[in-house]
Design a protein around this nucleic acid. Structure first.
Length: 895
RNA sequence: GGGCGCAUAGCUCAGUUUGGUUAGAGCACCCGCUUGAUAAGCGGGAGGUCGGUGGUUCGAGUCCACCUGUGCCCA
């Protein structure tokens, strides 16, 4: 046996039960099981009861069968915020939720039912939808739990729960009470085959051949120059002409009155005159106008007894048509907006079957997609109003189910008046009191709020919370009344919203309730449901006020930036309308997942990353670490390469902690030395720890976990691994176990281990628990119940820190000078370093600091191979070897 | 088509608000050392002209304009 291995038994090498290889796939489920069994979440609630609260209110995701890593990022970001708050001693509950109603699930049910859909009773459809929603919630919950997210997952909030539904109805009742809600016609996509409204997501755009006609609207009222002339419109939907209420021009553009083919005199956009002439006949300009000149002009409808005004609109196309736009507010979104702006009558002479009604005059009874077009074109031709007719192929919306082209049709909808009681202005003014992360979102949300139209609350759907209105069967009056809604709310709160579909109106109304208009007592229930955004936008009532007993605003809402238009905005509006205040203090927003090329993640692009796949493949702690290292406020890239990088970082943390734990192998029985008894380098180590952790805390406080991670990583690599742990080896391994010098280092190592573990615990939730189990002095049953060490700041000593600046420089210089010596197969412990006086006049401390064999103080810096022999135990070339061959220190340590 | 963002080494990020010496880290990479943190550790090195173009300026990654790519929202 060699001499060296003899001495190996006399030194204290690191020893720990923490395996080098993590085996996360096994470790994580084990930890999660433990947390569930010990009821970690519940115990944290008790442990932090009475502490300052910090509430992150979870925006409810839609329950889907399949989660990708991007979805999990949102949850992990939230989890880190909550865990950090908890670590700092706050009572920070996390009540996760799901947005269970809505179109995607209803469509799935529709697909399953196929042709049976129309004959299936509504309660049955709702039952199936609920079942699917709950199934998906369960699937998602498993994933979130697999990702180590800590929260009230065994009693989450679901928007389909009676209590939640009652909260929605309560908010609605208060808004009705205060006059925010009104009913009005609005144009919607309508399928005449399925006789149903279609949402934007239910449209598929395909090529479709339509008529393309040019029609003259004779001037009825206008300047002398226009007498006897006409405005020429272009349209591809002749059947909408009965709904015409105006013709629109662009206020700032140039228009020209021209004669076409020598006879017809019509106004068109000047820049389109040439194009129009191709179909309308040779054009001869007569006079030019600005769009604005037509302000007072009125025209005669081409076949109905009606005058329509010329109005201004900025969407007037200048590259196709005539620049004069047929406007039918009941048949198109932009037309509708124009109609609202000019207070035009919004009417829709088309019924649900697609048949023109009485208001369409001679065309009554014709089907808009089958025979109305031809009849109208023929009529226009005969009356001379038709300038030209052709066919055109263009992209046109079709129904997702029957694939037939859809139409626009105006129906009565429920709206929130966002300007009632200055709601919009009040919300805008409140934005200054909200902290936006990132700051730029302030302007984004502000401009969205400024420009948004009134909020259409109603959907002609089945899977949602019903709008609690009653229609009088006798006179058609709609009773939308806060007191009635409160009655419904109370019953829904106990029995669930399904009662709306199971009971008759009379069972939900007070006995003998009579219509205020006609006195009748025969009522019908409204069949529309709420926009799901109204449900989630009212979450503050049930979740924050009722379940979390929160008086003030939530501390944080944290979602993707698509929620500026969605949940953020649509929570602000009801909260202001009902409570006159914002629902949150901090608004944190993250970007979206893209791949390494910056393209969005999608299954069709083949860059889709399933959350479950990655959990199993890389381990959750690695994925969490990856997510925690991203500047999430921009779009963030994810790929296998990124996961690999995260694994490397993970190994750094793990090995650093492993070494620290190994060195603390015999820490437990020690009495810790007083601070002033500690070696200077160890006091410096604690000073640095305090400084680093201060920065880490500031980063977490600013919702910048990625910066905290960066600081921690740098700390591990550059300070712990490269300097401290390397320097400490000699003292920790070779000094006597109970020497004050060794205890001094152990004390520092222990503080570092503690702080580093805790600082990483919001990210590496499983690994830090594993490390915590091996702490020599745990204070709690779980790392997640520990508190951030308050005494950290006391270690800070800036004066000491400054003293080390030149010493760090010296170290750099010595390392450079060591290069040629290393090239001769020598190591730094072979070196004899001469250090100029004034940097650190302590040769022993310097020899540790520089990991040199021995150090002399002198005039100039010099690094050379020592002439001394190495001590066989500590392997340093020492000038003080004794007769046994050991250096003085090793003799004492072994003696 | 419109609005709002983003674009610095192979990767993740600093630096841009208040323009000024050779643009900084870590990881990965290459070379060397170590074998007493060892499927670990230490040291050294190379690598960007800051998406593009054009301006303002004595001077721009940093200010302005336009463009390209990309993302979200809206139409």
């Amino acid at each position: 046996m060699s001499k060296t291995s003899n001495y190996k038994d006399t030194i204290l090498l690191p020893r720990t039960a923490l395996p080098m290889r993590a085996g996360l796939q096994k470790l994580e489920p084990r930890m999660q099981k433990r947390w569930k069994e010990m009821d970690l979440y519940g115990r944290l609630r008790s442990a932090r009861a009475g502490r300052p609260r910090y509430v992150l209110h979870d925006g409810p995701p839609y329950p889907t069968g399949d989660l990708h890593v991007g979805t999990v990022l949102n949850k992990v970001l939230k989890d880190m915020v909550v865990r950090w708050a908890t670590l700092r001693g706050h009572d920070s509950p996390y009540l996760p939720g799901w947005d269970c109603h809505g179109l995607p699930i209803e469509r799935k049910i529709q697909e399953r039912l196929g042709n049976r859909w129309r004959d299936t009773p509504l309660p049955e459809i709702r039952r199936m939808a609920r079942e699917l929603a709950l199934e998906n919630v369960e699937l998602n919950r498993q994933v979130f739990l697999r990702y180590g997210v800590l929260g009230d997952f065994y009693d989450p909030y679901l928007t389909l729960n009676p209590g939640y539904e009652a909260g929605v109805l309560d908010v609605f009742a208060r808004m009705v009470e205060q006059g925010y809600v009104y009913r009005k016609l609005k144009s919607v996509h309508w399928c005449t085959t399925d006789k149903t409204v279609l949402a934007e997501a239910e449209l598929e755009y395909r090529d479709h051949e339509s008529p393309s006609i040019y029609v003259d609207f004779q001037v009825a009222v206008g300047p002398a120059q226009l007498q006897g002339a006409a405005f020429m419109i272009w349209t591809t939907t002749p059947w909408t002409l009965p709904g015409n209420a105006a013709i629109a021009v662009h206020e700032d553009r140039d228009y020209v009155l021209a004669s076409f083919g020598g006879s017809r005199r019509s106004v068109v956009l000047q820049s389109l005159l040439g194009e129009v002439a191709k179909v309308a006949g040779e054009a001869e300009p007569i006079a030019t106008f600005k769009g604005a000149d037509f302000a007072e002009v009125r025209c005669r409808h081409p076949f109905l007894d009606r005058e329509v005004p010329v109005v201004f609109a900025d969407y007037v196309a200048t590259d196709i048509g005539t620049g004069v736009v047929h406007t039918a507010p009941g048949h198109g979104r932009e037309d509708y907006d124009t109609g609202v702006r000019y207070d035009l009558e919004i009417f829709c002479p088309v019924n649900g079957e697609g048949l023109l009604t009485e208001e369409a005059g001679p065309f009554r009874g014709l089907h808009v997609q089958r025979d109305a077009n031809d009849a109208i074109i023929e009529h226009l031709r005969e009356s001379g109003r038709l300038v030209a007719a052709a066919r055109v192929r263009h992209s046109y919306p079709h129904c997702w189910r029957c694939h037939d082209p859809v139409i626009f049709r105006a129906t009565t909808q429920y709206f929130v008046n966002v300007d009632h009681e200055d709601l919009r202005e009040r919300v805008l003014a409140s934005l200054d009191g909200i902290r936006f992360v990132p700051e730029r979102d302030h302007a984004r949300l502000e401009s969205m709020l400024r420009e948004r139209p009134d909020w259409c609350l109603s959907r002609q759907r089945t899977w949602g919370v019903p709008i609690p209105a009653f229609h009088c069967n006798a006179c058609g009056y709609t009773a939308l009344d806060a007191a009635l809604i409160d009655r419904v709310r109370d019953r829904v709160g106990n029995e669930g919203a399904d009662i709306w579909y199971e009971l008759e109106a009379a069972e939900l109304l007070p006995d003998g309730y009579a219509c205020s208009e006609c006195g009748a007592r025969d009522w019908m229930l409204e069949r529309d449901i709420f926009d799901v955004w109204f449900e989630s936008g009212a979450s503050w009532r049930h979740v924050c006020e009722n379940r979390l007993a929160l008086d003030g605003p939530a501390d944080v809402y944290l979602e993707g930036h698509d929620q500026h238009r969605g949940w953020f905005q649509l929570s602000l509006l009801p909260s202001y309308a009902v409570r006159g205040r914002a629902p949150f203090l901090n608004l944190v927003t993250h970007g979206f997942t893209v791949d390494e090329h910056g393209r969005k993640m999608s299954k069709s692009l083949g860059n889709y990353i399933g959350a479950r796949d990655w959990a199993e493949k890389h381990g959750v702690d690695v994925v969490r670490l990856l997510l925690a290292s991203l500047e999430y406020r921009n779009d963030y890239p994810l790929s296998e390469g990124h996961a690999k990088t995260a694994s490397e970082t993970y190994r750094v943390y793990r090995n650093t902690l492993r070494n620290l734990l190994g060195n603390l192998r015999d820490f437990a029985p020690f009495e810790q030395p007083a601070r002033e008894e500690m070696l200077e380098i160890d006091r410096w180590a604690l000073h640095r720890l305090a400084v680093v952790m201060e920065g880490v805390a500031a980063s977490y406080d600013a919702f910048e976990a990625f910066k905290a991670n960066q600081k921690l990583h740098l700390y591990c690599v550059k300070e712990l691994s490269a300097i401290l742990i390397d320097c400490w080896k000699d003292r920790l391994y070779c000094d006597g176990a109970d020497w004050p010098s060794r205890r001094s280092a152990l004390t520092a190592a222990q503080e570092i281990t503690r702080a580093l573990t805790l600082a990483l615990s919001p990210i590496l939730v499983h690994t830090t628990e594993e490390v915590h189990d091996l702490w020599p002095d745990p204070k709690a049953d779980s790392v997640h119940m520990e508190e951030w060490p308050a005494h950290l700041a006391e270690w800070r000593d800036d004066e000491l820190g400054e003293r080390f600046a030149p010493r760090l420089e010296l170290r750099e210089q010595v390392l450079k000078l060591l290069e040629p010596i290393r090239a001769q197969k020598h190591k730094s412990t072979d070196a004899h370093v001469t250090v100029p006086r004034g940097v650190w006049d302590d040769a022993e401390a310097l020899s540790e600091w520089l990991i040199a064999g021995h150090v002399s103080l002198g005039d100039a810096l010099q690094v050379e191979v020592s002439l001394c022999d190495p001590c066989p135990r500590c392997r340093r070339r020492r000038p003080d070897l004794d007769a046994s061959g050991l250096c003085a220190r090793c003799t004492r340590a072994t003696g």
